[in-house]
Structures are given as C-alpha cells and as structure tokens.
C-alpha cells in the first residue's frame, strides 16, 4: 500500500518537466526565466561532459564546441541568409564533425593526455576566433545576431520563447542521455572506463566508441551554442573560454558523474547559489570563485560521488535502517 504511494524517480521527473513547462505562465519574472535558460544550456553542456567521462575521458573543451556551433550557425545565418532552424542543426553537426576529426587523432592517446589535448584545443579555437578576424570578427566578436526565424507565424525573440527553446533542447538532450544510459551504448561506454583492455578483448573498438561519445556530446554542445548566439544577439571569443569548459567539469563533479542526473543537480545548485547570494545586501560577487572552490573541495573530500551520490547513499542507508526496523518488528511479533 505504502509502496504504491511512494514517489518514483520517473514521477519526480514528470513533475519537474511539467513545472518547467508551466513556469513562464506562473511567473513573469524575466530574470528567473533567463537564469533557467542559462541553466538549461549549462545542463546540456555538462551532460555532454559526463557522457565523455563515461568512456573514461575528460574533455576540457566543451565550451569551444559550443563556440563552434555558435559561430557556425551565426555565420551561415548572417553571411548566407540560411534559415536559422536549419542552422541550429547544422551547428550541432559542425561541432560533432569537428569532434570526430579531433577525436580520431587525440583519443588514441591515454586519458590524461586527452584531457591536456582538449585543454589546448580550447585555446586553439579561441586563437582562431581572435586572429581570423575577417571571418570571425576577432576579439570584438559578432554583433546584431538576429532572433530565430518565425515558424508558422510564431515569432521568436522574447525571453519566454528562448526559455522554451532551451527547455526543449534540455528535454531532447536528456532523453538522449537516458536512452544511452539504459541501452547497450551506455553499457559499452562504461565498460571502457571500467576496464578498456577487457572490453577490447570482447570486440569493443575503443577509439570508435570514445569518438562516438565525444561526437554526441559535441552535437548537443553545438546546438546549445547556436541557441546561445540567438539569445545574446552577440558572440565573441570570451564567451567560450577554457574557464567555461572548466566550469562544466566543476558542475559535473559537484553533481556527480556516476549518475545521469548529476549534471542537472550540479548545474542547478551551482547556478542558483550565486542567485541566492545576490539577495544578500552588500554582497560582493568577487568572492564567488572562493565559494565555488570551497564547495568543490568539500564535495571531492566528503562525497566523491557528488551530490547525487550523497543523496543515493542517504536513501540506501535509510532503507537499510527501515528494513532492519521491519525485521525487528517481525521478530517481536
């Protein structure tokens, strides 16, 4: 009886999804709408980071792939006048293709070198955007990026419309991650992280599987980049820096990389903490990096599984004590 009434993870998800869909109708607060839009983009990026981590690799270039998508879509729209919705997908494909090429070269090397290679890659992309100013607009970036083209008479450009595009992107990325997680794709990805030689001995093509994870992650990063460009109406190399890539790593680690929900939890907590702190009068955001660093150290020291790992541990402990209590009652009766 009690069991039937218990909240299942799927129900919690459904409630969150419905709340996200209804939120703009419940609250017109533009600041919160924008924050959640940013949050959705961050979750998409961090989920990609986690997907790559599932194969045992750390990519510290996810912001650069977001930039690849942003520049690709922006240039196609502004220089060639292509439809922004087509460019939205092309941005994903461009980022995935770039990841494929980079991946086939760099994923042959051992894990730590891949992390370093992606770190360098993020800088490389930034330099290209800065130096090749005839195409990418240099340090000043590209301004006056239009809003997405209207579909069936619906216009996009308001804060609410961006919110819904971001939420849609978040839902599709999450659905993809869940399918991967629950299918053989995720099984094979994590087998590589757990024991690559054993996986290879059973026929798993290590390079191709790692490249696959990298490409899927970057596909969504590219789409998120295209959305970001429309949202800001302005992009420049400082939007896609190494520091941003490191932030996605940080969100992932704090939320927990073991669980598919880790990125969402990590991003939500870390993006809403500053929002909360700014409610404090005379608060100076300069100390934020210190707070973030402190949280990271605490999480890594006390819950290596991240916040989701901590939660799962608490729940399983609770269940244990509950079942022990049940046994005692049973024995007493």
């Amino acid at each position: 009886m009690l069991k039937n009434r218990r909240l299942t993870p799927n129900m919690v998800l459904l409630v969150i999804a419905i709340l996200l869909i209804l939120f703009p109708m419940l609250s017109g607060n533009k600041y919160y709408l924008r924050t959640i839009t940013t949050l959705a983009i961050a979750i998409v990026l961090t989920s990609g980071f986690r997907l790559i981590a599932l194969t045992g690799q750390l990519s510290i270039a996810q912001a650069a792939f977001m930039g690849v998508g942003a520049y690709c879509s922006t240039l196609l729209i502004m220089n060639l006048g292509w439809n922004s919705w087509i460019c939205f997908f092309l941005a994903g494909f461009a980022a995935a293709l770039t990841a494929g090429i980079v991946g086939f070269i760099t994923l042959r090397i051992k894990e730590i070198y891949f992390a370093i290679a992606t770190l360098a890659l993020n800088e490389l992309f930034r330099l290209i955007w800065v130096e090749w100013d005839t195409l990418f607009g240099g340090p000043a970036g590209i301004v006056n990026i239009p809003s997405p083209d209207p579909i069936l008479g619906i216009h996009f450009g308001s804060v609410v419309s961006f919110y819904y595009i971001a939420v849609l992107l978040l839902f599709s990325a999450t659905a993809m991650m869940l399918r991967i997680e629950r299918s053989r794709i995720g099984l094979i990805f994590s087998s590589i992280r757990e024991f690559d030689t054993l996986a290879a001995s059973l026929g798993v093509n290590l390079i191709w599987e790692k490249v696959k994870a990298f490409m899927i992650a970057c596909f969504f990063a590219g789409m998120a980049g295209a959305l970001y460009a429309h949202l800001q109406h302005f992009i420049s190399p400082v939007d896609f820096t190494l520091m941003d890539s490191v932030m996605f790593l940080l969100y992932g680690v704090i939320g927990g990389l073991e669980s598919v929900w880790g990125p969402a939890v990590g991003c939500t907590v870390m993006i809403f903490i500053p929002v909360g702190l700014r409610l404090i009068p005379n608060y100076n955001p300069v100390i934020e990096p210190i707070i973030f660093g402190g949280i990271l150290i605490l999480v890594m020291r006390f819950c290596p599984g991240g916040l989701v790992g901590l939660f799962q541990k608490l729940v399983s402990d609770l269940k244990k004590t509950e079942s022990q209590k049940g046994e005692q009652e049973h024995a007493a009766a």
Binding site: R179, R184, I185, L187, S191, V204
Partner: peptide, 25 residues
C-alpha cells in the same frame, strides 16, 4: 558491474542492435 552486465558486454559482437536501434528503443 553486475554479473548480467558483464555477460552483456560479452554479447557486444553478437547483439545485432545498432546505434539508432538503441537510441529509439
């Protein structure tokens, strides 16, 4: 990993389930 998951990795070459099959479920 669980015993079943270990055996499931062993099926890698035989599974016949492709990428899109897995995604679409």
């Amino acid at each position: 990993s669980s015993v079943l998951r270990n055996i499931q990795v062993g099926f890698h070459l035989q599974s016949g389930i492709g990428f899109w099959g897995s995604i679409l479920g």
